[in-house]
Design a protein around this nucleic acid. Structure first.
Length: 486
RNA sequence: GGCGCUAUCGUCUAGGGGACUAGGACGGGGCCCUCUCAAGGCCCAAACACGGGUUCGAAUCCCGUUAGCGCUACCA
């Protein structure tokens, strides 16, 4: 039973970006679904760099793709395949197609073709190659080849209909009459995309081709190539595109589209993956927030969407906030520390030295952050010797300097009586202070908040006093008193 | 132009013939909690593109229209 043999073969998928730019969020999502499929069903996820376009491919882009995938944690199996290294096989496959009569030499020049294309357009007709070179007598072909006349190799599209059952779209069919006799090998003997892809996918044993639906119209051509080459067909799965807020294909105009942009913006890879997964896939029901293992567990082809999705940065930010609050502190710490160090708030050694204190701080700040940068922005007052006073905070909460100073002095005294620097004792001291002075607790807390942080917003006042410690807290109050007196 | 794909709130989506006064989430508005800001809780506004069928019954199936997107290279 050949079916048994086929189904016992390991599932192999691949992500095949061309290194002509940074890893795009659309590409990252394609990679994610391939990866999820492989991880969920015990298949292999391969990476192939399609660098056959030497003019546009760069090593820098290749590196960016690696870095992007690594940051996201989309690890690939086996070594990276570079398409450019397979030139000989591509040529051999083209030759083979020529020899078995599935393809033919075409001597029409690019300029001639362009001319005919223009004419057809002028007549408002669809241009289609007229196969004139396929009708050349064999002696003529031999004569031209012998004369060293340049030619391309074209695939002879047979009559009929080419169809397949797509994993996401079900049946898709193309009448072959609408498919041009496409070029598979250029006159300089380099392969055209469709040939290179099919040749490589066959060689790599890829049996599920999952890619963007902008490749749907390439698929019938590729199927024809598989058949002519005598190779078994893979299963195709065409994923919908990602669009910008204006409904157009995502591009630079839409702002950040590179995965690296989000990394530097302070996102968690888990959040990015979660967001990307929901763009074009749904686990069903109301499930939204998922860890990577949960996504693998929940992943299924049924949930794949047919419709293009719009990339909404607002929801991404919200989702990152959710992940920020959800991940274990030990996992969050290494993501935040480099940013803290870069912001020159502390050295890595200093953070290691008071790790428990540092983790507590992260826990305090993350709940009101949507990005890692938000955490860093709030962290200043806990590390810096001197703080800046936000003019708005001063205007609002130190409205009357004399009054504020009076209150702060009283607060300082009240804090001095606190024996245990705990939430309970601090709260008791400050609330009774407010009561004895006949003001609300907020009237006491807000000026103190400005003294401690220079800001109107911060974590709860007691948590903050504890986090800063008695010494620093008192020092900040003294400093505020000095500023108010000036 | 030709060919193809798609079509549920502004956005991501649930839904796969009756459970739909169409559910959830983001964003927006309001309220609660509260020492500020978040977080959290509660509530509100907001959608089945249109037209024909099929069926006792359609968001769900079929056809058409419209719209959006993609492809239409000796690019990938």
């Amino acid at each position: 039973m050949p079916d048994t043999l086929a189904s016992s073969a390991k599932t192999r998928l691949r992500f095949a970006p061309s290194p002509t730019g940074y890893l795009h969020v659309g590409g990252a999502r394609t990679a994610l679904f391939n990866w999820l499929y492989a991880r969920k069903f015990g298949g292999e996820f391969l990476l192939r760099i399609e660098d056959t376009d030497k003019a546009r491919s760069t090593e820098e882009s290749t590196r960016a793709i690696f870095e992007g995938l690594q940051w996201l944690g989309l690890n690939w199996d086996d070594g990276v395949v570079y398409q450019g290294a397979n030139l000989a096989r591509h040529q051999a496959d083209a030759r083979k197609l020529l020899e078995i009569g599935a393809a033919y030499r075409c001597f029409c020049t690019a300029a001639e073709l362009e001319e005919r294309r223009r004419e057809a357009e002028a007549r408002k007709e669809a241009f289609k190659y007229d196969r004139r070179c396929d009708r050349l007598p064999s002696e003529e072909i031999e004569r031209r080849v012998a004369a060293g006349m340049p030619y391309v190799i074209r695939f002879r599209v047979p009559d009929g209909t080419t169809e397949w059952v797509d994993m996401v779209h079900e049946r898709i069919a193309f009448p072959n009459k609408d498919i041009d006799d496409f070029v598979i090998l250029r006159s300089d003997a380099t392969p055209i995309y469709n040939l290179a892809v099919v040749s490589d996918d066959i060689a790599m044993g890829i049996n599920i081709v999952m890619r963007g639906d902008d490749h749907i119209s390439n698929t019938p051509k590729q199927i024809l190539l598989y058949r002519a080459l005598g190779a078994p067909l893979p299963t195709f799965a065409h994923l919908p595109m990602i669009h910008g807020l204006d409904g157009k294909k995502l591009s630079k105009r839409h702002g950040a589209t590179a995965v690296g942009d989000y990394q530097h913006y302070g996102l968690l890879p888990g959040a990015m993956l979660n967001f990307l997964a929901l763009l074009g896939w749904s686990p069903g029901g109301d499930r939204e927030i998922m860890t990577v293992p949960e996504m693998i567990e929940l992943f299924s082809v049924d949930g794949l969407q047919k419709k293009a999705a719009i990339f909404d940065p607002k929801k991404l930010e919200w989702m990152n906030g959710q992940h920020l609050s959800m991940v274990p502190l030990e996992e969050l710490e290494p993501r935040v520390t480099p940013a803290i160090v870069t912001a020159r708030l502390a050295t890595e050694e200093a953070l290691v030295e008071r790790r428990d204190w540092y983790l507590r701080l992260l826990d305090l700040l993350r709940v009101r952050s949507r990005t890692i940068d938000d955490i860093v922005r709030q962290a200043g007052p806990y590390f810096l010797e001197d703080i800046d006073y936000d003019p708005a905070a001063v205007a609002k909460n130190w409205k009357d300097p004399a009054e504020a100073a009076l209150l702060l002095r009283a607060t300082r005294e009240a804090l001095a009586t606190v024996r245990d620097w705990t939430t309970e004792d601090l709260e008791a001291a400050l609330r009774s202070l407010a009561e004895s002075r006949g003001v609300t607790a907020g009237n006491v807390f807000q000026p103190l908040r400005v003294a401690l942080t220079g800001l109107t917003v911060s974590p709860g006042i007691f948590e903050m006093l504890i986090q800063m410690g008695r010494e620093l807290s008192v020092k900040r109050i003294d400093k505020a008193l000095a500023v108010l007196a000036a």
